[in-house]
Amino acid sequence: MVEITKAPAGFEGPGFFATSLDKAVGMARKNSLWPLPFATSCCGIEFMATMGAHYDLARFGSERMSFSPRQADLLMVMGTIAKKMGPVLRQVYEQMAEPRWVLSVGACASSGGIFDTYSVLQGIDRIIPVDVYVPGCPPRPEQILDGVLKIQELVQNESLRRRDSEEYKNMLASYGIS
């Protein structure tokens, strides 16, 4: 049976349904996220498992990988980001169009993990803002799915004006992204 997502709260009567634009847009965005997999190491293999038939990320409307940053909504960073890779990651983030979300999968991407070494970036949040962190080394596919669902929650509830606010602009400026 195909189950269509639930309509947001609103007024309903014969022939009409009224809700706020925020909620309608949030619902649409939530269920059609195009992820950009930025898979560098071990977590990338678990992501392959998440994409596979067994765990099937497609159930949540995210089966369409977008390998072009311009057309992606969700940047999924999976695996260790070395300092050599940092500028590349940042460039990919800068190329993405707003609204954009970032999911940091695994201990390495979130904090450097066990690799507290001279060559590893100690968490991608030093160079780009992150919305959801998924712990684990590597996380199980269920955890990655949970992270995507958490992102969907954020997407659904985000106000349409958030990205124009001073607060958001200041946050980006603090990362040096204009």
Partner: peptide, 10 residues
């Protein structure tokens, strides 16, 4: 070297 993690040093 894009994910060089310094295994030997570690």
């Amino acid at each position: 070297g894009y994910i060089h993690r310094a295994f030997e040093k570690l």
